[in-house]
Amino acid sequence: MKDKINVLVFVFALLSTGLGSGLAWAAEGEEANEPSVGGDTATLSTTETLTPAAPTSILIAPVVNHSVDVDAPNIVLSTLPIPMAGRGYYVFPVNTTKIVLEQEGFYEAEVVHQQDPTALAALFGADAILYVVINRWEAQYIVLSTRVTVDFSYRLVSKAGEELWQANQILSYEPNQQNSNGAAGLIASLIVSAVENTSPRYLSLTEKANSTVFRRSPTGPYYVRGKR
């Protein structure tokens, strides 16, 4: 009985790495970690069903911004390639993408998001598009401290226009209040909140939102469990 418990504990420890690894695409004929060069043409027998080809490459569209901070979309954009590639996809270079879209006349992220996904994907040869929207990106000054809040929406859409995955994440950060007595303590707190540079806070909240959300996103052909 004791041996059985030992085995169970060991198996549980191994399985716990699998938790939150997300969905795996059940595409036919695809092996994990092997680059797919393109679909093979095959004749289907009447007993086979055609499953949609799993995406291997993702275009990260410029980020739509509903906040008043004009720097926010580029900051968020810079945080997306690494986690998205970590889910096992080829990710198109975001800076190159942005510049090419601008050359095509698409200067506004909103306009890019409104384009037909099939046409947009075809421009790059992408299998799917990641759309990210900043709903909130704000610092609220609450008496003696600053609360920083971010709120993002994520959508993964196939080149056929099918929504593959979507998520929403809201995160806030507010420093712990020190219980200081007297006027000196109050003034110190006011100074701290006034001079605090919120930029690193926004960045770390964004990265945390991404990692939380991508843990539940579908994985691609290059995904390796335990690696990011």
Binding site: F92, P93, I99
Partner: peptide
């Protein structure tokens, strides 16, 4: 090489 890095150098 990580995806896209060569291309980013090209664009720069």
């Amino acid at each position: 090489p990580a995806p896209g890095l060569y291309a980013e150098v090209g664009t720069l």
